[in-house]
């Protein structure tokens, strides 16, 4: 579990350097949030647009936009950065939404709703996470939503899918089984293993 055990680049110092104009630091900083943004994007796209849009593309757009406009970012903490990235992601999603909904006119309300959703989704990720008193989690002092997203991203795909569909999208096992083209039993197996793995990822657990 390299991301948790070996010290990953410290986002605070990267952020500081990036703000001071260090483009290399910026290039290292923004990808740290790819998983997180991807998870948020995926949740929004699946739920709201029901369109076959690859979240990676939206996130890529958003990160590009963030990179180009980084000088406009005024915050100094990771939390502020996340809020800012979510705003950008909402804009990117709105562009995609316009495209798929074939509306030429800009739907401000849609965009704002998206942003609010993202805000809330992320807040939910973090607020509840913050209550975890796991020492390692606390020691990280990172935005917990980001940690969850990264941990999920490190799981094997079929585990991750089951966990996201089950817990973040709230589907039942039969529906998940149908979507993944597997039996309900094997989905449940993935589920229990996935939970164990997730916990180990998050706790920095070793055997």
């Amino acid at each position: 579990m390299p991301a948790l055990t070996t010290p990953s680049p410290n986002p605070d110092s990267l952020l500081r350097r990036a703000r001071a104009g260090d483009t290399q630091a910026l290039a290292m900083l923004l990808p740290l949030y790819r998983d997180y943004l991807k998870l948020l994007a995926r949740l929004q796209i699946d739920r709201r647009l029901q369109a076959k849009v690859d979240p990676s593309d939206v996130v890529q757009d958003a990160l590009l936009m963030a990179h180009r406009n980084f000088r406009l970012f005024r915050g100094s903490s990771e939390l502020e950065l996340l809020g800012w990235l979510r705003q950008i992601l909402a804009t990117s999603l709105a562009v995609v939404a316009r495209h798929y909904l074939a509306t030429k006119q800009r739907r401000l309300d849609l965009e704002q709703e998206l942003e609010k959703d993202l805000d809330n989704a992320s807040r939910v990720l973090s607020v509840h996470f913050a209550k975890q008193s796991t020492p390692s989690a606390l020691a990280m002092k990172r935005e917990e939503g980001v940690l969850l997203a990264s941990a999920l991203a490190r799981l094997p795909e079929h585990y991750r899918e089951v966990l996201v569909l089950r817990h973040l999208e709230g589907l039942g096992f039969p529906e998940i089984a149908q979507r993944l083209g597997r039996s309900t039993d094997s989905v449940k197996k993935f589920w229990s293993r996935g939970l164990i793995r997730l916990r180990r990822e998050l706790e920095g657990y070793h055997e």
Partner: peptide, 12 residues
């Protein structure tokens, strides 16, 4: 861990 996060996403 995950349920705490997911349970409230509905309230977004």
């Amino acid at each position: 861990l995950i349920e705490r996060a997911a349970g409230s996403i509905e309230s977004s």
